[in-house]
Amino acid sequence: MIDTPRARLAQGLALAIPALLLGGAYISQYGFDLYPCEMCWWQRWPHFAALGLALLSTVIEPRKLWVALAALAIIASGAIGGFHAGVEYGWWEGITGCATTAVADGADALDAILNAPMIRCDTAPWDLFGISLAGWNFLISVGAGLTILALLMKRA
């Protein structure tokens, strides 16, 4: 049972962090045309898993276990984001052939494919203070995941 204030905070963070980061990803994609590359998608999958695990923690025992697993999934997304940021900054090589095309919904499929821009994994389409979206995912996800785990480990 989630019975301490720290454990409840950990559970709340495990629900909020992936929801907010996924929300931001979809807003940037559909609101600002920042289409995801393949590695961007890789970062989303652990957040979906974390959200599901955190939701399980609200109904199934042992609740702290589900929150801890959600925290590990959040950290996994951050680790992928750190690798992706390193590729964007040119610190190391990425996965060969890592690119995807943006598809226009509702248009002719062939025209959408032929006219879609190529989204490369080694180019940051946007940054804030010199940190790309993948870099921000690394910083936020690893920090939040470790915070959640620390909150779960403390007594009282």
Rank of each mutant, 00 (worst) to 15 (best):
L69C: 03
G31H: 00
G23W: 00
L53E: 03
A104V: 14
I113S: 10
V103S: 14
A134Y: 01
S141L: 08
C40N: 02
A70H: 08
C121I: 06
I75E: 10
S132R: 01
L55I: 13
A85S: 11
V103I: 15
A112K: 01
G130T: 00
D105L: 15
L72H: 08
L69N: 01
A50C: 11
G94F: 06
E61K: 12
P18I: 00
A85D: 07
T147H: 09
L53K: 10
L51D: 13
G86C: 01
T4I: 03
D122L: 08
H84Y: 06
N137P: 03
F48M: 13
R8E: 04
L21N: 02
L56G: 06
R155Q: 15
W45E: 13
A150H: 08
I17Q: 13
S132V: 04
A68V: 08
G24P: 02
A156S: 12
P5C: 13
I27P: 02
F129C: 15
A73D: 06
S132A: 04
G82K: 04
V67L: 02
T58R: 15
G81K: 06
G12I: 12
L55Y: 00
C40R: 09
G82P: 02
I17H: 08
G81P: 09
L146N: 13
N115D: 08
G24M: 05
F32Y: 15
F32G: 01
I60H: 15
Q29P: 14
G130L: 08
A73R: 05
G86R: 14
G52A: 14
D108L: 12
A107K: 07
G52S: 07
F32M: 07
L22Y: 04
G23P: 08
A144V: 00
I119N: 01
R6L: 09
I119T: 03
M39D: 08
Y35T: 11
F83D: 04
V59M: 11
L9W: 09
M153Q: 14
G81W: 02
D108I: 03
L56S: 07
T101R: 14
A68E: 07
I60V: 09
F138K: 13
G130F: 06
L22Q: 08
W91H: 13
L13D: 05
T4D: 13
G78R: 00
G82H: 13
G52L: 12
I140S: 11
C121M: 03
G135S: 10
L69H: 01
A68K: 10
M39L: 15
